[in-house]
Computed example of a mutant assay.
Amino acid sequence: MTNATDKPTLTRLYARLVVSDGPRAVDFYRTALGAEEIERYTDPDGKIVHAMLRLGDAVIAVKDADESDPAPDSLGGSPVIMALDVSDADAVAEAMLRAGASVVYPVADQHYGQRGGRLADPFGHLWMISQTIEELTPEEIQQRTTDLFT
């Protein structure tokens, strides 16, 4: 599909998480984040080649690692951080911890008006959990950030 200027139109963007154990990862995201599996395709050995999960208004895909797509745990971690805006950062973090995640940064009030922290799921993916606790302007956030570093 194209727009009036004949440039391609972006129709969807989602993260595709490569994991070492697809079925276990789907169960983790279901338990920890309330994900709903909306489709799954497997190879003849039962490995997930594509599973689409709905998390609130967002979707992510999960697939088992293979020769072409390594999982973060085989690479020493992931440089990508999934950011989740939630209504209760403490409750979401606690659910993730109960399901097997680990704390990278504990949930705490942040200078930019969020309560949040960072967790690692059992498959090497990083998740930043954030809850708005204070409505700030961009200028106020920048001033607080400047103050933090001076």
Score class of each variant (00 low, 15 high):
residue 102 S to P: 02
residue 134 E to I: 12
residue 85 D to W: 09
residue 93 A to K: 00
residue 121 D to Y: 00
residue 87 S to N: 11
residue 53 L to I: 08
residue 46 G to M: 08
residue 142 Q to R: 14
residue 67 E to T: 10
residue 92 V to S: 00
residue 71 A to D: 07
residue 59 V to H: 07
residue 73 D to L: 11
residue 121 D to F: 00
residue 33 L to S: 01
residue 76 G to C: 05
residue 70 P to R: 10
residue 64 D to Q: 06
residue 80 V to S: 13
residue 63 K to P: 02
residue 21 D to L: 14
residue 47 K to R: 14
residue 14 Y to T: 14
residue 36 E to M: 10
residue 44 P to M: 12
residue 63 K to N: 11
residue 90 D to T: 04
residue 75 L to F: 11
residue 26 V to A: 03
residue 132 T to P: 05
residue 43 D to H: 07
residue 57 D to R: 14
residue 139 E to P: 03
residue 75 L to W: 09
residue 108 A to M: 12
residue 34 G to N: 07
residue 69 D to F: 15
residue 30 R to I: 02
residue 55 L to T: 01
residue 110 Q to V: 11
residue 39 E to L: 13
residue 9 T to G: 06
residue 144 R to H: 07
residue 65 A to Y: 07
residue 60 I to G: 03
residue 124 G to P: 03
residue 148 L to M: 14
residue 55 L to M: 09
residue 5 T to G: 09
residue 125 H to E: 05
residue 61 A to N: 09
residue 121 D to V: 00
residue 78 S to T: 12
residue 111 H to T: 14
residue 139 E to I: 03
residue 55 L to A: 05
residue 69 D to E: 14
residue 23 P to N: 12
residue 150 T to A: 15
residue 37 E to F: 11
residue 79 P to E: 07
residue 58 A to K: 06
residue 9 T to R: 07
residue 112 Y to M: 06
residue 128 M to L: 13
residue 127 W to V: 01
residue 92 V to I: 07
residue 2 T to W: 11
residue 111 H to G: 08
residue 59 V to D: 08
residue 63 K to E: 09
residue 15 A to M: 15
residue 148 L to D: 08
residue 112 Y to H: 05
residue 19 V to Y: 03
residue 94 E to G: 05
residue 53 L to W: 05
residue 94 E to Y: 00
residue 9 T to D: 07
residue 121 D to R: 00
residue 94 E to M: 02
residue 31 T to M: 03
residue 91 A to Q: 04
residue 102 S to H: 05
residue 128 M to A: 11
residue 36 E to Y: 09
residue 114 Q to I: 06
residue 119 L to H: 01
residue 106 P to L: 10
residue 150 T to Q: 15
residue 123 F to H: 03
residue 19 V to Q: 03
residue 98 R to Y: 01
residue 1 M to S: 15
residue 83 A to T: 15
residue 85 D to S: 14
residue 150 T to Y: 13
residue 41 Y to M: 15
residue 37 E to C: 14
residue 56 G to C: 13
residue 133 I to G: 10
residue 39 E to C: 13
residue 104 V to W: 10
residue 73 D to G: 06
residue 61 A to Y: 12
residue 53 L to Y: 04
residue 72 P to C: 06
residue 62 V to N: 04
residue 68 S to L: 13
residue 103 V to H: 08
residue 47 K to M: 14
residue 99 A to Y: 00
residue 20 S to M: 13
residue 113 G to V: 04
residue 27 D to I: 03
residue 10 L to G: 10
residue 143 Q to M: 08
residue 50 H to W: 12
residue 146 T to Y: 11
residue 118 R to C: 05
residue 103 V to L: 08
residue 67 E to R: 07
residue 125 H to F: 06
residue 120 A to S: 12
residue 71 A to K: 04
residue 68 S to V: 08
residue 127 W to D: 00
residue 15 A to F: 15
residue 20 S to Y: 12
residue 112 Y to N: 08
residue 143 Q to F: 03
residue 3 N to C: 12
residue 59 V to A: 10
residue 133 I to Y: 06
residue 89 A to F: 00
residue 101 A to W: 00
residue 93 A to H: 01
residue 120 A to W: 01
residue 114 Q to W: 03
residue 30 R to F: 02
residue 28 F to V: 01
residue 96 M to F: 02
residue 51 A to R: 06
